[in-house]
Structure formats: structure tokens, C-alpha cells
Design a protein around this nucleic acid. Structure first.
Lengths: 231, 231
DNA sequence: ACTGTTGCGTTCATATTGGTCGTAAGAAGG
DNA sequence: CCTTCTTACGACCAATATGAACGCAACAGT
């Protein structure tokens, strides 16, 4: 596993205070790097067109810019033949704007004001999505679906019936601190819980995109699924 | 619950057989209506521009059109100021196209060939998403996240009995990155799996058209079949 | 041309694990 | 104190990779 290159980010906001704050949030995240900032539509287009600036992969985009609308900026960028991913960060709550933004390809929509936790969740989701789709050069339906699953919000604000947030935290912590990917049985014995329970929580982590599962081959018998913590 | 108006769909494909088939699939779904069909980029743009045709809300879009690329068509439509939702339906499996399509706002990506069940799942997901975002005129972060989460693919993939999607992905990756065509034995030793398992998955790849197998002659012993990844 | 050798394709039984159903223990509410 | 809902456990059935055994196709030597 080679070291992954950071995701280059362009932050766009016409309010200097918000611009600095968002850029700072990005710098606090591992795997991301602020490649440039822009205070408006013109500046953003200049950055995207500048050959001296390396390829931007993600844009944090405010909708209400002084010299235009964020969605127009996005259309202009698309018109240049560029297809960066975009996280919309705005105070606009009109459904029409939200629908249009989603139709134009934003990967997340963050309504201001927001906490760093909310911000981090969106960017981590994008990070997982990005990792899943850059591994290979050709893909399958299954891989696309899994990548999209990690990208869309998991709605984990409300965890499924039959699960306790405390137990979920315990399992998450154990898996995160595990040096190697672990099977359901290993987690179960390590935490002194039953295999079924461990598997149920591990599966939830896999579905929400916090972990990935892969079969472990080489020994006879049905392959056991090992779970690996992401990030 | 008042009766909801049907979602108007435009189907785009340059193959008349596929075009008719996809349109027929749409007609079999409740809540959807085929507003028009188009056999190419020009025809699709004409439909979108025609004031006599009511507002299209969803496009089933093929990528490989005779007179252009599907992604270009999507950019052109955006350039008209229209923001329809799009489901990509294509045989293209290149990661670059998939990434671009997602960045340009497609709500689902269906790789041909597909079953009606897979098709229905994508459209039903979109239907739920559409219903959630047309209820109100102003929304909240929570409502947006819930709407986006309905667009998450369920991830259930129909595979032949006796096969695991994760293992299939592993074998596909190995074969794809192999410089030369590989035999079942070479794949088995390279992935630390048994020869039988490797051969079963390789055979599946050959049957689905992702790979071809050819006998390798010249050495004593029964000729071994070598598998080569297809673009 | 015939036959032996060689190595792989193929089949089958087996070893383990995954997934699901019913049930018990514990907490919350009346 | 009793009822009810929730969560974890135990045991069953189903599923998947493995290894060995069998058969076949091409090469090589006689």
C-alpha cells in the first residue's frame, strides 16, 4: 500500500472570514491539501485555468458569490472540460437550488452554519469514495454501487433497530486499534461478545462505509470475511 | 397522499433495439412516463429544446452515441440552463468515465447488460429521492441527507451461486493488472487461492465477456487455458 | 503410427464460516 | 409488581473455498 497523495482542494467563498475558516477546516484533515482559495467566480475560474496550479480534485463551493452564482460557476467549469468534485457549502435552503446542485453533480450539500464534525463527516465520506474509485482503472457495477454508497450520507443519525450506540463504539474502537484486519470471530473473542453480535455491528460499519470487508483465502473451509477500518 | 404526477422520462440510445427495450422498461414502472425517445445527441437536444414537449425530469442516457459522447450531451443540456436528473445506462466500465459521470451529477450508473430488477431498483430509488425533495420549498440539512441517502444503491448484486463479489473483484483486479495473459494456476499462486477457485472465477469472467480464454500450446502436457482481460 | 508421460481441466466430498430464527436477560414504563 | 420493548446469545441451516482423485489432451520417444 503506497502512500496516497493528498486530495487538492480549492475553497471558494466571497466572505473572507468564511473562506479562511473553511480553508482551516480542510487543513485540519489528513489527506487533504488546500491548493488555492478564491473569493469569487472570476478568481475561481482563473485558478482552474491556471496551468501552474496542479489539478484540483475537490471544490468547496459557496452558492452566493458577489459576481455570480455558484451553480453558474460550476457550469462554467464543466464547460472548460474539467470535472472536479464539489461540496456545496452555503446558507441557501431553497429546494430548487438544492435539486439543481445535486443534478449538477455535487457530492455533498452543507448548510451554514455547521460544526466541524459535520464538515469532517462529509469530507471523510468523499475521501472513502475517492479511494474506492481510484484503486482500479476499470470497474464493475458492484464497485460503483459500493463507492456511491460511501458517498451518499448514510443516515446514521438514526442507527438501525437492535443496535446500541455504546456497543457500536466499542466495536469501532477495537477495530480501529487493531493492527491487522480482523474477522468476526476474532473481534468476538477479543471483546468477549458473541460472534453474531460482532458480525452484526461489523456489517453495519461496512455498510456505512467506515470499514470494508474482504474474504480471507488460503485455508480450507468457507472463507472468513475480514473487516478493515478505513482512514 | 394526493395522486402524484408521473415523472417524465427521456430515453437516449443510439441502438434502436436497446432504445425500445429501455423505454419498455420505463413503461412497466408506475409513476414514470416516457415523454420522448432520442437516437442520438442531436435528437436529444432537439427534444430538450422543444417547447411543445413538457419538462423532462429524468434522462436515461447512453454514453456511446454515434454523434457524440453522453457526457458531452449532458454538458450541453446543462449549458441550456436545464438541470434534469440523469441515469447513466452504458457498457462503458472505464473508471474515468464513471468518475466524470458522477461529478456531472448522474444519480445512478447502470452497466449493460442489466436485469429488470436492477433497473427497477435504480428508478425506485430515484422515485423516493424525487418525492422527498419536492414536498417542500425550503429544506434542512437533515432532509437533504435523507434524500441523498435514498439514492444510495442497495449494493445487492446478483451473482451466480457459489461466488462472492469480493473474490470476483480481487480476481478481476489481478487479471487486469497482469502484463500477460495468465493461466488459472498463475492466478491461483499470485492470489494465494486454490486453483479450482481461480478457475471458477476466471470462467465466470469469460462467460460474462470480461475476459477471453485461449489454449496455450507448445509445452508437454495437456494445454492450459490462458485468460486475457478484455477492454 | 503407437504408446508412455506429463500436466492441467474437472468433479466431488469436506472443512469451516456466514446468515437467520427463536429465545432469554435486562431496561423502561404503567 | 406486571407488562412490554429492546438487545444479545445459542443453535440451526445454508453457503463457499479447499484438496484429492479422476480423466483428458498434447508432446516425445520408440
Amino acid at each position: 500500500m503506497n502512500k496516497t497523495e493528498p486530495i487538492l482542494v480549492l475553497v471558494v467563498d466571497d466572505e473572507p472570514v468564511a473562506l479562511a475558516a473553511h480553508a482551516d477546516y480542510v487543513r485540519r484533515m489528513d489527506g487533504f491539501e488546500v491548493a488555492a482559495t478564491a473569493g469569487g467566480m472570476g478568481a475561481a475560474l482563473a485558478v482552474m485555468n491556471d496551468p501552474a496550479i496542479p489539478r484540483i480534485q475537490l471544490i468547496l463551493l459557496d452558492m452566493n458569490l458577489t459576481d455570480g452564482h455558484g451553480l453558474d460557476l460550476l457550469r462554467r467549469i464543466h464547460g472548460l472540460g474539467l470535472v472536479p468534485d464539489v461540496v456545496a457549502i452555503t446558507a441557501v435552503q431553497e429546494i430548487q437550488v438544492v435539486r439543481s446542485a445535486i443534478a449538477l453533480g455535487i457530492t455533498a450539500y452543507l448548510i451554514k452554519p455547521f460544526t466541524f464534525a459535520a464538515f469532517r463527516e462529509k469530507l471523510e465520506n468523499y475521501q472513502n469514495y475517492h479511494a474506492l474509485l481510484t484503486e482500479r482503472s476499470v470497474t464493475t457495477q458492484d464497485a460503483i454501487d459500493r463507492a456511491l454508497s460511501t458517498l451518499r450520507p448514510s443516515g446514521k443519525l438514526q442507527l438501525p433497530k437492535g443496535m446500541l450506540s455504546e456497543t457500536l463504539g466499542t466495536v469501532s474502537d477495537w477495530l480501529r486499534s487493531a493492527p491487522n484486519p480482523a474477522s468476526a470471530m476474532e473481534v468476538a473473542t477479543g471483546l468477549a461478545i458473541s460472534r453474531v453480535t460482532a458480525r452484526r455491528y461489523l456489517d453495519h460499519l461496512a455498510e456505512t462505509g467506515s470499514a470494508v470487508k474482504a474474504p480471507r483465502h488460503g485455508s480450507p473451509g468457507r472463507p472468513e470475511l475480514e473487516y478493515r477500518w478505513l482512514r
